[in-house]
Structures are given as C-alpha cells and as structure tokens.
Amino acid sequence: MNTTSVLAIFIASIFTNNILLASFLGLCSFIVVSNRIETAISLGIAVTFVMVFTSAINYIVYYYILIPFKLDFLSYVVFIAVIAAFVQFLEMFIERFSPALYYSLGIFLPLITVNCAIFGAVLFMVIRKYDFIQSVGFGFGSGLGWALAIVLMAGLRKKMGYSKIPEALKGPGIILIVTGVIAMTFIGFTGMLSTQ
C-alpha cells in the first residue's frame, strides 16, 4: 500500500514526475503532433481522457481478476488489450459526437493505442502499489502532465519557426534538445514535494 495522498500524487505526476519530461515516455507522438498548438491541446485532452479511464479499468482488471487467479504474468497483454479497446471505443465516440475533433486528430487518435506514456502510467500504478483513487488521480495527473509538455513544446515550436536553427538539427534534432531543456527546468519543481 502506498500512503501518499492523492493530491500529492496528482501534483507530482504533473510537475515533478512528469511522465514525459522525467520518464521520457510517449515521445513519438509528442514530437510529431507538437507542430500546432490546437492539435496539441486536443491530443493532450484525448490522452488524459484515455489515461484516466484505462488506469481505472486496468486497476479493476488487475486487482479483481488477475491477482485472485495469480495471473499477474498476463498483465502486459491484458493491459495493452484494454488500452487498445478503449481507444477504439473513444474513436467511435468522438467520431459520433465531435466530427471536427475527429478530423483534427486524424490518424493520431488510433495511434494513442501505442502511446507508451499510457502503458507506462498503468505499469507505474502497479509498481507503486497505488489504490484505486490514487490510480485514477495518477492517471489524470500524468495525462495533464503529458498534455502540458506537448502544449509547451507546440508553443516553443511556433516561436522556433522564426529562429535560425543549424541545418543538421532541423526537425526532431532540435525538438529533442529543447525537450531536454524543458525537462531540466522541470527539475526546478522537485523541491515542491517529494513522492514516489
């Protein structure tokens, strides 16, 4: 059992233990989709949404099905299946109720399935022995943290459009360097609280 308060976990997963900037998970869609702020925001929201729900569903599946049957070695397969199914569901849902959002996310919506940040969040939930409320709080915080990072990046890339970038670093090169710099500035939040 982990005794950290939900609020602390929530704040920590946004700032001090940001899943992207501290664990470097979910970098691929972060690099590709951070070219426009609007798309970055909508993908951030979609990722947050998926993280909250997959953390919750996977928590139930893990602690109420896999553990009682001593089948925790199946967890990776099951977690991924749950994430994939949920993203499929979300795709249908968004297509039905918000075609505009559906089109603006385009191909990146189904790609959330393979966003390792989501799988990472679920695994952290198990490793750190969070209870249900903590897991949901952690999922929500991690999602917001990822969204914050990608929106920051999109904003910076807009500015970088006017900068002179060395030819060899154009594209992903400079993005990775800037990501590193943002990650270092986030170390500044470490003093705010310390959690696991």
Binding site: L74, V77, A85
Partner: peptide, 24 residues
C-alpha cells in the same frame, strides 16, 4: 491463463461490437 485471457478479450470485443452498433 488461457481461459481468463480469452474471457477478457471476449468481453472487450463484445463491448466494442455493442458500442459500434450504438454509436456508428
């Protein structure tokens, strides 16, 4: 393990099929 795995996958598929019927 096989049983539980199949069970979970089945539940997920049924859920998706139902949502497809209702949503799409």
């Amino acid at each position: 393990a096989v049983g539980v795995n199949v069970g979970i996958f089945l539940v997920l598929s049924v859920w998706l099929l139902i949502s497809e019927k209702l949503l799409v």
